[in-house]
Design a protein around this nucleic acid. Structure first.
Lengths: 294, 294
DNA sequence: TGATAAACATGAATTTTGTTCATGAATTAA
DNA sequence: TTAATTCATGAACAAAATTCATGTTTATCA
């Protein structure tokens, strides 16, 4: 079997010319290399080098192994380097799960400085999970979960990273636009746009319409924030989004946001991590960065 | 140090799920794999897997090694396969040196069936050598030398592969074209085209003009056979080439060839090989193929 | 819920492998 | 011819890998 040592030996011979010097460079005796290759020659039943005068010349087989070594050894060395970084906590991978559609913009602001700071951390953002977001975290499909509704379990810690108000968005020309807040029955003739999520998990239903036994005229799913807001701005309907996100878009679009009822709907975004994984530098720092980012 | 066995172990775990089954697949004990990875973990100072229930889950470091294994192990296996072929004489490389300009066409005819028959032999044809053709053969720059003038030495065997006549080529409209052969003094007013080789090594000088103390009006070098014959066909001069080669071109060009003097110049093409390298199947077969090809 | 099975870890004993040392043979250079 | 260089080889020794026996934890099932 071709082992790493064989690749090292042939590379050293190519680099230093003689077996003796190659042995020195590998901190082994000339005899060790000679025995080592002799054994391999026995296994593959073909010579690897031939003596020419008092030097060696690689055979075709030897050249093949040498070519392989050129390709393979650097990869082994590189992986050892990465492993070393992992050991020091300077490298690793962070797979982020998102269970909060509008948080994407916020996440981009978290990620940007983080990637600068941790150049060797691989990052992967996923949005759909085979067994639900919680399952994904527990089954190591992801390492971090970003969600507005944490499902507390003993194995997962949730850290709140920021508070915001969930607000209704209407066109600037809408009659509701003049109000400071909206009441449930005022939406009965409206078209509601939302991300494609079960209605039960939408706060506008669970915390606003359902308790008041009210409803909307029609409920339509739209995948992206941009298109949803285009529709709202065009007066085609209304939607519910985080206040800070609406503020952002309101700069360039004719839209307005108002409070749900008199008290409004207060929300928090949580970062969930497996509680066995505290003390991982780059993970802790991700959470710190998340708390810092508004 | 990352060794092949570590790559094999992680691959087997990925493939079979448990350490015990992985051990079976590698024909080793579960304990052996456990010890082996434990040692590596000590060296790289980071865990490779973690126990989850009674199974294992690779850490980030483990995943890295596994990814490396996916890339590297197939290469090792492939090289072992090639080495095995080399051992059986089914693979290797044949570097052919050419010291005979017009032989190129002939070589193509030899090579064609040969490549079919030996699909795993690498072939390389070289035409210029750092220390001369003989030196190239002795220094293992090439494995086979094709030449019309063998320089006999104890270390090299020359095998004649075919005989031919060296002939003068003239335009069909040339006054000499009516003759069967040409005499030295008849060339004194002619322009002679030849490949760029020292005149001493041109048979037309060494075997025809010089012995008769004759010469030509002008001697010009031309690199390729095609252009040389175009010039001759256009009546711009004459040249000397193997009879069989002229016959080939005469089918489509207004040229004619005639004998040098009454006896003509007889030539042989030789294949030279290092005499330590008999009994190499694919080399022997190359020579056999060369003898067969006219 | 307790018994059983499955899976991995660990320490000691053993076997295998790798390494060195001493030496020989071949080649080159002085 | 002599000395130096280089690789090969066998024997002794050292180190590493492997197994064996056993322990611990976790999952399964009656």
């Amino acid at each position: 079997m071709l082992e790493r040592i064989h690749l090292e030996i042939l590379t050293a011979i190519k680099a230093h010319g003689t077996l003796t010097k190659a042995a020195d460079s590998l901190h082994l005796s000339q005899s060790a290399l000679s025995h080592s290759i002799k054994k391999l020659e026995g296994q593959i039943a073909t010579p690897i080098w031939e003596k020419e005068g008092r030097n060696l010349r690689l055979t075709d087989a030897g050249e093949h192994i040498q070519t392989l070594a050129n390709r393979v050894l650097p990869q082994l060395v590189h992986t050892e380097l990465v492993l070393n970084q992992i050991a020091k906590g300077e490298a690793g991978s962070l797979r982020i799960g998102m269970e909060c559609h509008p948080c994407y913009q916020w996440l981009l602001r978290v990620i940007h400085p983080y990637l600068q700071k941790w150049p060797n951390i691989d990052m992967d953002v996923k949005q759909a999970f085979q067994f639900g977001a919680l399952g994904a975290l527990l089954s190591y499909e992801i390492d971090v979960l970003i969600t507005p509704d944490p499902l507390f379990t003993p194995k997962i810690d949730y850290i709140p990273v920021f508070d915001y108000e969930h607000r209704l968005v209407v066109a600037a020309s809408h009659t509701l636009a003049k109000q400071d807040n909206v009441l449930p029955h005022q939406l009965s003739e409206e078209v509601l746009f939302s991300y494609p999520v079960e209605p039960l998990r939408l706060d506008i239903f669970s915390q606003f319409l359902n308790p008041a036994k009210c409803s909307v005229k029609k409920h339509k799913n739209i995948e992206t924030t941009e298109i949803m807001l285009q529709m709202v701005a065009a007066g085609r309907g209304v939607c519910a989004l985080p206040g800070w996100l609406v503020d952002e878009y309101a700069k360039s679009m004719p839209i307005k946001s108002l409070r749900f009822g008199e008290k409004g709907i207060s929300k928090q975004i949580f970062v969930g991590v497996r509680n066995t994984e505290q003390d991982i530098d780059y993970l802790d720092d991700f959470i710190a960065q998340a708390k810092k980012t508004k």
